[in-house]
Amino acid sequence: MSKKKFSLTAFLCRFYVYILLLIMYAPIILLIVYSFTDTKIIGNWNGFTFRLYESLFHDSEIMQAFKNTFAVAISSAIVSTLLGTLGAIGIFYSKRKAKAVMEGISNIPVMNAEIVTALSLTILFVSIGAAFNFTTLLIGHVVLTIPFVVLSVRPKLMQMDPNIYEAALDLGATPKKALWSVIVPEILPGVFSGFILSITLSLDDYIITAFTRNTAYQTLSTYVYGVTSKRGTLPPSLRALTTVITLIALAILIIVNIKSGEKENK
C-alpha cells in the first residue's frame, strides 16, 4: 500500500518536471514549427515550405547582425578570459587587504543591475568625448563577463596544491616557466568554463549592447528589439533564425554532455 502511494508521488514529481520543461519550451517549439510555413501570423498554417530559411540566409541585415553578435561575443570572451585569468591568479597571491579590495570590485558588475553598469559606462564615454564604436561595445561586454571568469578560475586556484609551484621552482624552473607549466594546466578547466560563460552572457546581452554600441552596429538582440518594437509580431524569417540557434545550442549541449560523460567514465 505504502509502496504504491510512493510511486504515485514519484510519477507526479516526474510529471511536474516534464510539464515545466514543456511550458518553458512551448514558445520556442511554436516558432520552430511555424518556421516551416511562410504565414505572417502564427496560427495560420500555410503549407510546408523552407522559404523562410531561404529568406533568412538572403537577409543581409540579419546575417550581418548574426556575424556582429559572434564578433563581439568571441572577442570579448578572449579579452575577458586573458585579463580575468591573470587577474584571478594575481588576486589569489595578493596580500589579504589588496585581495579583499579586488574581490569586492570584481563583485560589483555581478551584483549591479545591468542598466546601471550600462549607464555608468555611457557616462564615462560621453564625458571623455569618446566616439561609440566597436571598442566601446567590446569594453561593455568585457565589464559584463570578466567577473565570471575570475569567479570560475578562483575555485581551481583554491583546490590547487600550493606545493607544486614551489617544487617547480626548487627544481630550477623560472617563475614564468613554473606559472605556465604548473599553475596554468591546473586551472585550465576553470579558464575554459569562464570562456564559455563569457560567450553565453555576451550572446544573451541586450542592455549593455544597446547603450555602448554605435547605433549603426546591429547585433541580433538590438535587431530583434528594433523590429519587434516597431511591428506587432516577430518577422517570419526570425522564426527560422530561432530554429537555427536552437539547433546550435542543442548540438553544444549534446557535445558537452558526451564530453562530461567521458570524463565521468574515466
Partner: peptide, 12 residues
C-alpha cells in the same frame, strides 16, 4: 533557453 538570445526568447 539562455543560449537563445534573451530578446528573441521574450518575443517568442
Amino acid at each position: 533557453p539562455m543560449w537563445i538570445n534573451f530578446v528573441l526568447r521574450t518575443a517568442a
